[in-house]
Design a protein around this nucleic acid. Structure first.
Length: 271
DNA sequence: TGACAGGTACATG
DNA sequence: CATGTACCTGTC
């Protein structure tokens, strides 16, 4: 157990921000969430600014501080928002506990291919099914079993039909083709983190089922290019509030954080 | 019943 | 390059 104090952090908001599909409330445990990331399993509980992580201090420092982007000062980002921009101010107030995570690349690629024309509960269901069917099994700190996200080889070895049975629908062939492309080295995942935003996006666009929006999500949520600004149906609606155009120049280099505030606000805020 | 959910591939002009 | 359409599946 490791206890920490953080501002601009709300695990519940992060879980509902739609950037991560394996961060869920623990049933019957108040303010507690479970997370599977990479090979690790973690539980997080929060009471106000006090956050408890179910890991050692050492693991927290070496892994999770970076994963949750805790070294970044998000208050500075909020201060950069135009004081006259009522919408963004309110969005940042409502969703201000969101952090841009540093998720595992392959899992993020597959998850966001699944995300197209899909809702969050069903995306979670699909991701769970992939983990259960194709992922390796590990044990958490209680000795309970959990499934890891399947490696590219595991998904390259299956068929479109099998994935359709799991409810992936028309995304099934995309996943199989993309997994095969990765295994064949058509796109080298290992070298992607070295690239800049534009170059990384260009590489990702080669993958089947990855278009501009999904590529931006991967850049933002896995490669931590926080300048990436995924535009989906909700964000399109939001952009209409800016008849003179959204002020991207003003927020150059970190517009993706504002995108997350706006996305969360469109989904859960304002009523 | 039909539209919609964090779009993309593929076919045209 | 810009536009149009089909596409799995669950939910309201």
């Amino acid at each position: 157990m490791t206890k920490k104090e953080f501002t601009d952090f709300d695990i519940c908001q992060i879980a509902q921000s739609g950037q991560c599909f394996r961060l869920r409330p623990v049933p019957e445990a108040e303010n507690t969430y479970s997370l599977t990331a990479g090979e690790k399993y973690l539980e997080i509980s929060q009471q106000g600014t006090e956050i408890t992580f179910s890991c050692t201090e050492q693991e927290f420092e070496s892994l999770w501080a970076r994963y949750f982007d805790l070294e970044t000062d998000y208050s500075k980002i909020k201060e950069a928002i135009d004081p006259e921009d009522i919408y963004l101010q309110e969005a940042a107030r409502i969703g201000g506990g969101i952090r841009i995570l540093r998720q595992e690349l392959w899992e993020t690629i597959v998850s966001f291919i699944i995300s197209q024309q899909n809702n969050i509960p069903r995306i979670q269901k699909c991701v769970d099914a992939l983990c259960r069917e194709f992922g390796e099994t590990a044990q958490d700190f209680r000795g309970d079993a959990y499934s890891l996200f399947p490696a590219p080889e595991a998904l390259a070895g299956t068929t479109e039909e099998k994935l359709r049975e799991l409810g992936l629908g028309y995304r099934a062939p995309y996943i199989v083709k993309t997994a095969r492309m990765v295994c064949e080295g058509k796109v080298e995942l290992e070298s992607l983190p070295e690239l800049g935003y534009e170059e990384a996006k260009e590489e990702l666009l080669k993958l089947c089922g990855v278009g501009v929006k999904v590529a931006d999500c991967i850049c933002l949520f896995a490669l931590h290019h926080i300048e990436a600004f995924p535009v989906d149906t909700h964000i399109k609606a939001m952009l209409k509030r800016y008849p003179k155009g959204f002020p991207f120049e003003r927020y150059q280099g970190f517009a993706g954080v504002l995108q997350q505030y706006a996305f969360y606000y469109e989904l859960h805020g304002q009523k």
